[in-house]
Simulated assay, not measured.
Amino acid sequence: MAAAATSVAILPSARRSCDAGKSRSIVFSSRSSKSVSFPSQPRRRNGNLRIACSVSLTDREVRTGGPDDLVDSILSKVSETDRGVSLKKEEHAAVGEVAGELQKYCVPEPVKCPLIFGEWDVVYCSNPTSPGGGYRSSVGRLFFKTKEMVQAVEAPDTVRNKVKFSLFGFLDGEVSLKGKLIALDGSWIQVIFEPPQLKVGALDFQYGGESEVKLQITYVDEKIRLGKGSRGSLFVFQRIG
């Protein structure tokens, strides 16, 4: 996994809902730092940035509890697939079709919804190397068996990614990243990660440099969250806390 391209797309434990008629505020803040150029997305990191997102939800907007059949369908399609690695092309297409249907039920401006916070299991990605980078490549999987891939999004603006693995089947290790979340608009977020931390046996060290990812939240409810990367990769996250 190349450090500069690490993009494990990670969230507090109690389940939440976007309660109708209540107002919530989510504040994202960041300080200027080094960046990787993404010409297709506008930069919003010059100087200090403070975005105060105040959301008032109506009954009409709370639509995430309705499409339970679609949620169950997409989870069944990605279950026991090594996070999508074992799926065939047509099966990936079927997952994408259900994700497209679920997107129609997404709350307006999901970045402002408190449901994005929590701890999530990364259960699927249409591109196996997007979450975990080289550790999840076809060669990397020969040496690193993924045991856990978790993303935690903590209020107000912290993202923690963690991949636990077994090296050669007997030596446990993990790679973790801590990032700063920045709201770009109502559905897009940017996360700027510190250099990754690697633990293998008695070794514990930081390597590489900063990295960043951009992700569009296309659906979120009490069970799952869907995201689409800036290069089109589809992610399915299942809530575990």
Rank of each mutant, 00 (worst) to 15 (best):
A3Q: 04
A4C: 08
A5K: 03
L11H: 11
S13N: 12
A14R: 14
R15V: 11
C18M: 08
R24Q: 12
S25C: 04
I26D: 04
V27I: 15
S32E: 15
K34S: 14
S35Q: 11
V36G: 00
S37Q: 09
F38D: 12
P39G: 02
P39N: 09
S40K: 15
N46E: 14
G47N: 13
G47Y: 09
N48S: 12
A52K: 13
V55G: 00
D59H: 01
R60G: 05
V62Q: 09
V62L: 03
T64S: 05
G66S: 09
P67D: 06
D68Q: 11
D68E: 11
S73M: 07
S76T: 09
V78D: 08
S79W: 02
T81N: 10
D82F: 10
V85C: 02
K89N: 02
A93E: 13
G96S: 09
V98D: 00
A99L: 11
L102Q: 08
V107E: 08
P108A: 07
P114D: 05
I116C: 07
F117E: 02
G118T: 05
D121H: 11
V122T: 11
V122H: 07
V122A: 06
V122F: 05
V123I: 10
N127L: 03
P128R: 15
P128Y: 05
S130I: 03
P131H: 05
G132W: 06
S138Y: 01
V139Y: 10
V139K: 10
G140Q: 07
R141K: 12
R141E: 07
L142Y: 10
L142F: 13
K145L: 13
T146S: 11
K147L: 15
K147R: 14
M149N: 14
M149T: 13
V153M: 14
E154R: 13
N161I: 02
N161W: 10
V163C: 08
F165A: 06
L167H: 09
G169W: 01
F170A: 02
L171C: 01
D172S: 12
E174W: 04
V175N: 03
S176Q: 07
L177P: 00
G179Q: 02
K180C: 13
A183G: 06
I189A: 00
V191E: 10
V191P: 04
I192R: 14
F193A: 08
E194P: 00
Q197D: 12
L203R: 12
D204I: 06
Y207H: 12
Q216G: 01
Q216D: 08
K223Y: 00
K223G: 01
G227I: 07
G227E: 07
G227P: 04
K228T: 14
F235K: 00
Q238E: 14
R239M: 05
R239A: 09
I240E: 03
